[in-house]
């Protein structure tokens, strides 16, 4: 039983106050959530997303917006090496979400990946249990572009729930063997991790339910 009492916690401020997040926390978070929801409900189809703020580099506004909209003290966040190397990134995320930043990918509910080329195996993150497949991680991968995605782009052919017929996307930079990794993730179903590609101005969802091959 918890006491509900009238103490207002005084937040402890870090040495340098991190920059602002959503201009309007309520509607900003709602709009970003809807973009992410649409993206996961329609795998491969980009959903427009405007963050409206600038996080510390190399964190991109879109990836940061997803985390600010969805994370709080209940969702440990894992940062990949390029993000972990910049203390301002963790400070920014902690300040705006209160989420613990963890170093063990197996302890994460959300993972932020600035360099998908160097990302760990998908199974390094929680994939849930047969009883509770939802107790699994959501990975946010920063990509520099969709469709016209440059040399390290991969092209994927998608089928499954949320996809009318088939969908094709190109995005990058992403690991060349991403389709194989996603297929392995699909084989765990209903266990597995869910991916969100954060591109400039849009997000693309790759939930575990999607059947992915190169193409």
């Amino acid at each position: 039983m918890h006491m509900v009492c009238a103490i207002t916690p005084v937040p402890t401020l870090p040495a340098a106050v991190p920059g602002p997040g959503f201009a309007d926390p309520v509607f900003g978070a709602q709009a970003v959530f809807r973009a992410v929801m649409n993206a996961l409900a329609r795998p491969g189809r980009p959903a427009a997303l405007v963050a409206g703020f600038t996080p510390p580099v190399p964190l991109t506004p879109e990836a940061a917006a997803v985390v600010l909209a969805l994370c709080d003290h209940e969702t440990p966040i894992w940062l990949d090496a390029p993000l972990a190397a910049v203390p301002e990134v963790a400070a920014f995320l902690r300040f705006h979400t209160g989420a613990p930043v963890v170093t063990d990918p197996a302890a994460a509910r959300f993972a932020l990946i600035a360099d998908p080329m160097g990302m760990p195996d998908l199974a390094a993150f929680p994939t849930g249990t047969p009883d509770y497949p939802d107790a699994s991680a959501t990975l946010v991968l920063q990509v520099s572009g969709l469709a016209d995605a440059g040399t390290d782009a991969v092209s994927l052919h998608l089928e499954g729930p949320g996809v009318k017929g088939a969908e094709r996307i190109a995005a990058g930079p992403l690991p060349a063997d991403l389709a194989r990794r996603l297929a392995a993730n699909r084989r765990l179903f209903p266990r597995g991790v869910d991916l969100i590609l954060a591109a400039p101005g849009a997000v693309v969802g790759l939930p575990r339910s999607t059947l992915v091959r190169e193409g």
């Binding site: 918890h2 006491m3 509900v4 009492c5 103490i7 207002t8 916690p9």
Partner: peptide
């Protein structure tokens, strides 16, 4: 009660 912010546990 459900609308009240929770500051923690006593």
């Amino acid at each position: 009660r459900t609308t009240l912010p929770r500051f923690g546990a006593s």
